[in-house]
């Protein structure tokens, strides 16, 4: 069933070229660390890992995804970093991402999911930075409404919330 919905409400707010970002060394986080990326990455700012606070994530270039989810009531506006951009920034070279939540819930996400127009690592919902009680600090949001391909149980299971770690694996 190829009922793709080609009306994604997907707006690029800021567009910063990844190559341009690449040029710089990954800065060290100054605020509370929201995300730690480990494993097969080339860019690090700590002990073999790349750590990001909210500002660093914002600096990667934010993207807005407007979509409904099966866990929320009504249309939601999510703002975050494209997974594609994030993986590019850390120089991920594996095939899979082991994404873990605060409570250690872990899902395996193929690196191939990280595409332009694909999932974002959201830190803001409906204009507010997401608290832990509201599935913060980070929630991997696929643009569910943009394609039926994103409305599958597998994708739902990959939409990990209360995300705080990522490990890039082979």
């Amino acid at each position: 069933m190829m009922l793709r919905h080609f009306m994604p409400i997907l707006t690029v707010i800021g567009m910063i070229s990844p190559t341009f970002v690449h040029a710089e060394e990954l800065a060290s986080p100054t605020g509370r660390i929201l995300l730690t990326v480990s494993g097969q990455i080339t860019e690090t700012n700590a002990d073999g890992v790349a750590q990001f606070d909210l500002d660093m994530l914002r600096d990667l270039g934010v993207e807005e995804v407007q979509t409904t989810t099966i866990w929320t009531d009504g249309p939601q506006v999510f703002v975050g970093v494209s997974l594609d951009v994030l993986m590019d920034r850390v120089g991920a070279s594996g095939s899979s991402i082991d994404a873990s939540a605060i409570n250690d819930y872990t899902v395996q996400i193929p690196l191939s999911d990280a595409v332009d127009g694909g999932p974002i690592v959201a830190f803001q919902r409906n204009g507010n930075v997401m608290s832990r009680r509201e599935k913060g600090p980070l929630w991997l949001i696929y643009p569910f409404d943009s394609s039926a391909d994103y409305r599958t149980e597998v994708i739902y299971s990959r939409s990990i919330w209360q995300l705080d770690r990522m490990a890039i694996t082979q």
Binding site: I70, W71, D73, I102, N103, K135
Partner: peptide, 20 residues
């Protein structure tokens, strides 16, 4: 942290259309 996680879960059950 655990409260927040539980809170989040209940919120999900409460708000998600699936469970409504």
């Amino acid at each position: 942290e655990e409260f927040d996680i539980f809170y989040s879960r209940i919120q999900t059950l409460k708000n998600s259309p699936i469970y409504s």
